[in-house]
Design a protein around this nucleic acid. Structure first.
Length: 238
DNA sequence: TCATTAAATTGTT
DNA sequence: AACAATTTAATGA
């Protein structure tokens, strides 16, 4: 992992989003024109360097975040000081709605696993959308529900001993079609990044990926991988 | 556009 | 943790 840079204040150098970047945001399509205009006007985007924190535990919530490009990691520090990784967040993923809803402080850390582009919607606009848009409410509700399921799954993954299955389940979580729509069959993630995410050595991840590929669940490519059989990844039937 | 070089990533030990 | 092999990205003619 690259050296943790000094606490960066995100969105200091904001800029308007391009059409391509907007197309990656899944919930924009669910809004009415008027709602959409307001959201787009408020949206900000910023680069997050590898290792940089997007938000930290205890910080007040100012933005609801989404990944436009790159890969983020969601984790918490437990009482013993150990870091527990919940999940990775690929492009198209949005997070922080739970805390944004209650205007509480963040309960977890979000760190960039590699250079990423992160979009932000101010909490005030987030609440305005909640008050005005049915489509937005549906999105947030679905998202919360799905996230809950994912947290429970993450606990199971952490208790699993077999590394092959751990890697498989973690990958399946990354390809969650509800949380991360628009993410195709290919995911740009290096084996090193995946190792940080799953909490295994790169060697072991490499070995697991080879096994999974041999069973036809995935196809390993340079700098990424392709999911061939998502069901097999989920069930561990390989 | 192509050839060369550097950097990143992978597969093994 | 270290190594060699492979792939991609960057550079400049």
């Amino acid at each position: 992992m690259p050296p943790p840079p000094p606490d960066a204040t995100l969105f200091q150098r904001r800029r308007p989003l391009t059409a391509t970047e907007l197309s990656v945001i899944p919930w924009l399509k669910l809004l009415l024109p008027e709602e959409r205009d307001r959201a787009v006007e408020d949206l900000k985007i910023s680069d997050a360097h590898s290792g940089e924190y997007i938000c930290r535990t205890g910080r007040p919530v100012t933005y609801w975040f989404g990944v436009v490009d790159g890969l983020l990691k969601m984790s918490t520090d437990n009482a013993e000081g150990q870091t527990m990784t919940f999940t990775g967040i690929p492009p198209g993923g949005w997070f922080g709605e739970g805390t944004a809803l209650k205007r509480e402080a963040y309960r977890y850390n979000i760190q960039a696993l590699r250079k990423s582009m992160v979009a932000g919607l101010h909490v005030d606009t987030f609440h305005w959308l909640l008050d005005h848009s049915i489509g937005f409410n549906r999105f947030v509700m679905k998202q919360l529900n799905e996230r809950l399921g994912q947290f429970i799954a993450a606990r199971e993954i952490d208790r699993m001993s077999n590394p092959d299955i751990r890697v498989a389940r973690s990958l399946a979580a990354l390809f969650n079609p509800v949380l991360y729509p628009g993410l195709g069959a290919v995911l740009r993630i290096t084996q090193q990044e995946l190792a940080y995410l799953v909490g295994l050595s790169r060697q072991r991840v490499n070995e697991a990926l080879t096994t999974l590929a041999a069973q036809g669940a995935i196809a390993v490519e340079y700098g990424g991988l392709r999911v061939v059989n998502l069901q097999a990844l989920r069930s561990g039937a390989f």
